[in-house]
Structure formats: C-alpha cells, structure tokens
Design a protein around this nucleic acid. Structure first.
Lengths: 334, 334
DNA sequence: TTGAAAGCGCTAACAG
DNA sequence: CTGTTAGCGCTTTCAA
C-alpha cells in the first residue's frame, strides 16, 4: 500500500521527534533548531532515508542528448544551448548516447521524468520513440525532421555544392564521398548535395562507407578511398577527414598533391591539424541557441524576442543571425 | 495542504474514470485497456498533469561534473566512467561547469537530489561545499584531495620530471612553466614537479600565468613566453600547448628549432596538430573507471572485483591497471 | 478491466 | 520551536 522502504515515521521514531519535524527538516531546515536538525539528519543517514523529490527541485534542467560527447561537432551546439539556458535560469544535463539507439532510448526514458525538456541532436532514433517522448515531455530535435516535433535543421547543401565546384575548378574529375552513420539526416543531405553537384558538373562521384563518424572511422575509410582511385575526397565530417589525413600520412600519400581532402563542420581540430583541413562551416552555435529558445518557449519560460518568428513553423532551417558570413561557408585549408 | 497544481482526481474527472485507473495508467499501463488508456493520457496532456516521480526512475543515474566539456582532457574520464556505469546498469549525467565555481555549486545542488551519486573532476570548489555535498549524496573526487571524501589522484610528477630532464638533455638552460587555473590541484603539482626537477638539474625555471586552460589561454600565454626569453616551455595541458603552437606559428617562431613546447595529458589533438606535440600521458581512462567503481561501491551497487583494495584508502594515487606503459609516460612529438 | 474504499506517506494549520 | 491532527495525493486490495 504505497509503502516506501524507509519512511519519515521510521526516521522520526529513531530521532525521537514527530513526523512533522522530520518533514520540516526536509522542506524548511532553517525552521528547526540546529541540534534537533542534526539528530534528524543523522537518523536519515543511518536509515538511508531518501526524501521525496518535488518536481520543482529537479525540473530546473533541460537535457541535451548527443551521439558522441567526444565529437567536437557538438561543442558549439552545447555552448549555444548553455547560453540560453543560463539566461532563463535552467541548468543543462548532457547525455552521451555513444552512437547507440539503444542507449539513446533508455537515456531518453530516464530523463523524461527528471528534466523539464529534451533536445535531441543528430538522433539515431526512429520516428516512433521520438514522437512517444514528445507526448510526455517537450522535445526539440536538431538535424532530424519528425512530423509533429519541433525541429531545427542546419542545411549544408549550398556549401557542399561550393566544395564540389571548388574541386572541379582544381581539375578533379573523379571524387568520392565518405558516408557517416546510415540513419543520419545530415549524411543523406550531404551525399545528395555531392551527387547533385557532381552530376551537374560532369564529375564522377563515388560512395564510400558507411563509416563511424570518428577518427578511427576515417582511418578505416582511407584505404577504401585509395582503392577507389579518386583524386579528391569529401568526408562526412571533420573527424573522418582527420582520420583520413592521418592514415594517408602513414601510407606516404601527400595531401593535397596526391589527394585532396575536404571535411565538414569546421570543428575543433580542423584549424590546427596537419596538413590544415579544408572544411565547411555550419551555424552550430546559432542552432544550439535556437533549439533551446524554442524549447524554453514550450516551457513558457522565456521572453524570446529572438527566434519567435522561427517558432511559427515546426520545421525550419536555421539561418545565421550574425550575418551571412558563418552559414555554410567553405573554408580552405589554412 | 500538500496540494499539487493538477491532481489525478482532476484527470480522472475529465477522463470519466476512477482515480485508481489513472494511477494504474501511470504505473502499470499494460494493465489498462488501450482505449481507456488513451482517454486518460489525453486528459493528462490537456490538463498538464505531471505524474509523481518515484525515486527509482530517477536515481539510476550518476552525475559527472567537468570544468569544460570542450576540453578533451575529460574525454577518457567520461568514457572510463561510462564503461563502469553501463556494467552496473546506471546512466550518466554530464554537467559542464564552465570553469566557474558558481555554476559548479549550483549544478551540484541541482543534481544532489536527482542523481544517485556525483563524481567531481578537477573541481574548482572549496572544501566546504564539497564536504557539504558529500553529506547529502555519495561523492568521489578526481584530482582533488578533501579530507573525508573519497578521492582519485593522477600524479604526473615523475613524467613531468622526465620531461624537464629531457629538455635539459637537449641543452636547454632556461625554461618556463605556463600555469593553468590557480585552484587546480594538478597545476600546483605540475609546477612543483617542474621547479624541483629544474633545481636538481641546475636549470632556471620561470613561471608564466595563470592562464585559462584552453586554446585561447595558450595563445595569450605565448606572448608572455616569448618575452621571458626561454628556449623551452612546459604547458599546463595540451590545449594551452596547442594555443601556444598556433600563436608561435603566426609570429613566425619555429618549433622546435627556436622554441620547444611540451604539453600535458596526451589528449585529442595532440597527435595530429602541427607541429606534432611532445606531451605526457596520464591514466585518464583508468581514473574514470576507478572513481566510478568507488562510487558504485558506496551505493552498494557493484560487485567490484577490481578496485576493491584501492578503496581501502580514502586518498589514493591511481596506477595503471594495464601495465606500466600508460602511466605518466613522456611522448615525444610524432 | 474497472471502481469503491481503505490506508499509507506526507504536509500544513493550529496550539502550546 | 515542536507536537497534534486533519486532510491531501496516491496506491493497492477487494469485489464485481
């Protein structure tokens, strides 16, 4: 009958006080004399009493699920969200789903009733569980369209096309794209952009992968790339590109003399790796900010001058709020 | 009187069922016929009913607080902890304290009653709040000694001494150490190691900083380093070292011809930056594992074959469990 | 499968 | 500052 393992009654008995006193120690500690309070707290510890958790204490937080906390791609998404959360007085719970839909599902389950809302970034989940979660708790997705769920998309289409065009200008006729995770929306969009631009420019575009979106994944991809006999490679992201660079260096292939390598996202590492990487910028910070603003809006916890008009549509493509410079720009190796 | 904004009674009325039915929908959904369940769920959504949170749903998680989620130093700490948590069926909550004691304190406060335990890594907090937290919830620190609180320390003393000796062998007579955060235990230990080794070998060792333990921090430090007229620099960590490398490259200073740079921690980026970085390995993965094992031990949630003997002491220095190779080893630039 | 009702854990009003 | 007590939210037993 609604029995807990150890109750306030037990604590009260051990501390020789009334239950109400125990109750007050939990909710209004300052209203209780220090010695009595100490006695009660000690009894709690000894009995292992866990006070009831009021939703208010725990719901001042918003969870952000990321596929790989070790992937710098997520850094600015995290930072952008943090900014907005801090301004609204919320705290951030980060969860690494380790690129696993299973871990992601159980994590989502776990935070669904401890956080006020959830931001799903580059989720590996099917539509169904995402919709199910969205019924229990406010959800915003980044780079994943699910009907009925608010979504922020970062398109890299034009930048990808610029990159392919750039390679064509350099004289490349046969290039390849290294796929990331099969379930990734970004991967699909990036591949489509490559294929389209290649067709338009009369280039032969080969597919390699899928591979893990990580440095080891890139190393694995490098051998496939060399076998394919292309002269340039576009990688799903910078991590993969860096992995390719490392493996090529091991095998004595020179970049860019023998092979051109282009990454994507312009994340941490792209600017100081060797040789410097050509990559595409993506408005990560802005996307993190916007997703969070949209979520806070759902929670009724934001004033939201910015981002309001965007929230009118459930599906939207982020555009940089700081001018056109940072959106999907091609950055040549430095 | 213990009133909630919206209760099961309200939901029951709207869905035209008994409260007990609503209760069952929350705790045993499968015991309720699908149509009734749908009606109840819809009423919940419409009224904004939030089911009571049972501790069990929420306490299957352990929080790890990190000073900067963007700092690769924490990657293996996170991964090591994850491994152990997964094995014990717990989930991980990551919190970025943004190098701020204020944010850290409030985050700690926030998770204290939503997580089963907390791991504090490289905390910027004073002893008092750490001890206070440890009274409410099981706490383990990494790289911070607080009496009465279980701690895992990663000493880099011998590796640091090796590094200084290595520089002396190369002929350097005047070197400097770039400080990280003033409150960091690691910083104090690293500086002490440098100073001792320098004195022993008759080198002049200059202090620079403190600087932010980040790439921008390293860039800022680089100018101070050049002004000091040394021929070699040991940085608090790899991020700072990489920042120094970048700034030196901008100013046309060659590494290692004009100036030797040594980092610390052998983190992501150290192996592919340009020029390659000489750095020190630290048993991060093992420390993350051990700290987590110790915490799970406190929770009575682990079988713990490994790490048991270590837990006998509240303060301990981690030694690599995978042989001597990874502990505090000097890694020359590749 | 569902409802009625009993009873538990907890809080809050009130008295001292 | 603390105990008594009424009463709320919720779960669970029991019966249909």
């Amino acid at each position: 009958m609604y029995t807990r393992d150890v109750t306030m009654r037990d604590v009260a008995a051990r501390a020789k006080v009334a239950v109400s006193t125990v109750s007050r120690v939990v909710s209004n500690p300052e209203r209780i004399a220090a010695p009595t309070r100490e006695r009660v707290l000690r009894a709690m510890r000894e009995l292992g009493y866990a006070p009831p958790l009021s939703r208010s204490t725990t719901s001042g937080s918003v969870a952000m699920l990321v596929a790989d906390i070790t992937n710098p791609f997520f850094f600015d998404l995290i930072r952008g969200s943090q900014e907005q959360l801090k301004a609204a007085g919320f705290s951030q719970l980060l969860i690494d789903t380790e690129e696993s839909p299973v871990v992601e599902a159980s994590s989502l389950e776990a935070v669904a009733d401890s956080a006020a809302g959830v931001i799903l970034t580059a989720t590996r989940l099917d539509d169904a569980p995402i919709r199910a979660a969205a019924e229990r708790i406010p959800v915003v997705c980044i780079n994943r369209a699910v009907s009925g769920v608010t979504t922020v998309m970062m398109s890299t289409r034009t930048a990808m096309e610029d990159a392919v065009e750039h390679l064509a200008t350099l004289g490349h006729r046969r290039i390849c794209y290294v796929h990331g995770p099969p379930v990734s929306w970004s991967d699909a969009e990036r591949w489509a952009s490559c294929a389209d631009a290649g067709a338009r420019l009369g280039l032969e575009v080969i597919e390699v992968g899928p591979h893990e979106p990580s440095v080891p994944g890139g190393k694995a991809a490098a051998d496939d790339v060399l076998d394919s006999g292309v002269t340039a490679v576009l990688a799903f992201n910078d991590l993969v590109a860096i992995g390719i660079l490392q493996r090529l260096s091991q095998r004595g292939v020179r970049v860019p003399e023998d092979l051109s390598v282009v990454g994507c996202d312009d994340t941490f590492g792209a600017d100081f790796c060797n040789p410097p990487l050509t990559t595409l910028t993506v408005p990560l910070l802005e996307a993190g900010r916007l997703a969070t603003t949209l979520l806070l809006d759902k929670l009724g916890a934001a004033d939201l001058a910015a981002g309001r008009e965007a929230s009118l549509s459930a599906h939207l493509t982020v555009r940089s709020s700081t001018g056109p410079a940072r959106t999907g720009q091609l950055v040549l190796g430095r």
